Computed example of a mutant assay.
Amino acid sequence: MPGHPNARLREFVGLEMDRYAGSAAIGDTGAAWWALERAHILSQPDLPMHLRVHWTMLGYAVRLCDLREIAGQTLRLALAPLGALTGRIPVGNTGRSNVSAFQPMPIPADLSASIEAEPRP
């Protein structure tokens, strides 16, 4: 949606999701998770987009039979709406089960530039 306030972020998330799909298709799990983590960081300001990334993470964890990640993504799918409603999203968090769901993290410089370039309503 070109007129949507988060249109550029959606575009950047889409690029990372494409990178994830390509990496997953060739079995490069490290690159696939890296792209999903980047998509997660970018998606945090937009709840529907944020949930979509977590659903994709959950699906990938199921595909890999990664029980820890399945549990972590299930928890995050429940927590994301609460965080959005209370304004307590941990900025920069990669969204994976190997980090606390409440821990803010540094945003990679290239993603920070993308986020800062996004006009706010």
Rank of each mutant, 00 (worst) to 15 (best):
A61I: 08
H40W: 04
Y60R: 12
V53F: 02
L36H: 06
F102C: 10
L85W: 14
A80Q: 00
I89H: 00
N93G: 07
E16V: 05
L85I: 02
L64M: 13
E16K: 09
I70P: 01
S23M: 10
H50Y: 11
P45D: 05
A7D: 10
R63E: 15
L15N: 14
I107V: 15
T29R: 14
E11R: 07
L85G: 06
G59P: 01
A21P: 01
G27I: 10
R120P: 01
T94D: 14
C65V: 15
S100K: 04
H40S: 05
A35W: 03
M17R: 10
H54K: 01
S43A: 15
L85Y: 06
P119H: 12
A71H: 08
L111I: 02
G30F: 10
C65R: 14
D46T: 01
A109C: 03
R52P: 00
I70T: 12
D110A: 04
Q44T: 08
D66M: 15
L85K: 14
D46Q: 10
P5Y: 06
L58A: 04
V62R: 14
Y60P: 07
E11L: 08
S112T: 04
I70C: 11
P81W: 02
A78C: 08
I26H: 06
R8G: 01
L67F: 11
A61Q: 05
P90C: 05
L77P: 00
Y20F: 14
L51R: 02
G3A: 15
A32V: 00
M49P: 02
Y20P: 00
A35K: 05
V91S: 07
H50C: 01
P108N: 11
A101V: 09
A32K: 05
T86Q: 09
R52E: 15
G72N: 07
P5G: 09
G72F: 08
L82T: 05
A109R: 15
I89Y: 05
Y20L: 03
R19H: 07
A71E: 14
L79Y: 01
H40A: 04
S100L: 11
M17Q: 07
D110F: 06
R10N: 05
L77Q: 01
G30T: 08
V99W: 03
V99K: 07
Q44L: 07
T29S: 14
N6V: 05
G30H: 12
I89N: 00
M57C: 13
T29L: 03
R19N: 13
D110T: 08
L15Y: 12
L82C: 15
M105R: 04
A25H: 08
R88C: 03
E118P: 03
N98R: 12
V99E: 02
N6W: 12
I107Q: 04
G92D: 10
L67Y: 13
R8C: 02
D46P: 00
L47N: 00
G92S: 06
P5F: 10
R19T: 05
A71M: 12
W34S: 15
M49E: 14
A25R: 09
R96W: 00
A80N: 09
F12D: 09
G27H: 13
